[in-house]
């Protein structure tokens, strides 16, 4: 009885040893398999961020930056997300939009903050975008729509500026697959609940904007690119229904109002300029 057991174990070990021995060879290099490395993503993040940095104005006022930062810090802490990976930028643009770029760049337009009725709405959208980053949706989308070869050629400087610009625009103005959006929504609700933030305003935000969908929606980018806002609002409500918690506000009310006030001034100033 002992003999077959020993032989069986030896056979399994033999297989594992063969596998292990073979892994010592860098096959990816030998077969020249194209793959996205951290470096590729880092470089792409820089390239795309440059596009937005050069075309819009970044708001760097201490109060604005700190307020958004404390909101993101609270969300990250409650969900054990490494905040140092995220690079938050607030840009002065009246579009209601926020989006994620490769390598953890998260861009929020001032229009989104100014059009959020309360801080929970903004927190919801931020959580949704952080979910896209955490679930690695950005690189997935790029790989699918642009292709690995084009992405890699961008990072090696073999691609024209126009291509980079177009790709960056695509990231800011088109949604992910329906299933990825849903994943991000559900994850966002989890993030909100973990941070003790009421997810209902996030759903209301979608409802509210979906009602405006038939009007001229040139400013409602975030909603017009994310289809079926009503349906999304419904499943967010459905998902968070049984999960009531002791909800708290991340920012003091005064800080939130100050943020909007300050942004309003900044955007007015810039627009007058």
């Amino acid at each position: 009885m002992k003999k077959p057991i020993i032989q069986g174990v030896v056979t399994i070990l033999l297989f594992l040893a063969t596998w292990f021995a073979l892994t010592q060879i860098d096959w990816v290099k030998i077969f020249k398999v194209e793959q996205i490395t951290d470096k590729t993503e880092q470089k792409l993040g820089e390239l795309f961020w440059d596009v937005f940095k050069n075309s819009e104005k970044e708001i760097k006022t201490t109060h604005v930056v700190n307020t958004i930062d404390s909101m993101v810090t609270k969300i990250c802490k409650a969900n054990k997300i490494d905040k140092s990976k995220l690079k938050i930028h607030v840009l002065n643009k009246d579009e209601i939009n926020a989006f994620a770029l490769p390598n953890g760049h998260l861009i929020i337009y001032s229009g989104l903050i100014l059009n959020s009725d309360n801080q929970e709405e903004l927190a919801g959208v931020i959580c949704h975008e952080i979910a896209h980053i955490e679930l690695k949706h950005v690189m997935k989308k790029l790989g699918k729509e642009i292709g690995l070869s084009v992405l890699i050629s961008m990072t090696t400087g073999n691609s024209g500026a126009e291509v980079i610009k177009e790709t960056a625009r695509m990231l800011s103005s088109t949604a992910f697959d329906r299933s990825l959006e849903k994943d991000a929504d559900i994850k966002a609700v989890d993030y909100l609940l973990n941070a003790n933030v009421n997810p209902e305003p996030f759903a209301n935000f979608l409802y509210k904007l979906s009602e405006n969908e038939n009007e001229v929606t040139q400013y409602l980018t975030w909603v017009s690119t994310h289809p079926d806002s009503k349906e999304r609002a419904e499943y967010i409500i459905e998902y968070s229904k049984d999960k009531t918690a002791d909800y708290q506000q991340i920012l003091a009310n005064k800080t939130w109002l100050n943020l909007k006030e300050e942004l309003k001034e900044i955007t007015n100033d810039i627009n007058v300029d």
Partner: peptide, 19 residues
Amino acid sequence: TEEAVTSKYIAYIIAAIIF
């Protein structure tokens, strides 16, 4: 899925072919 081709994968396939 988003799973990538790694040296570990290629090594497994070669080991499997040998067996």
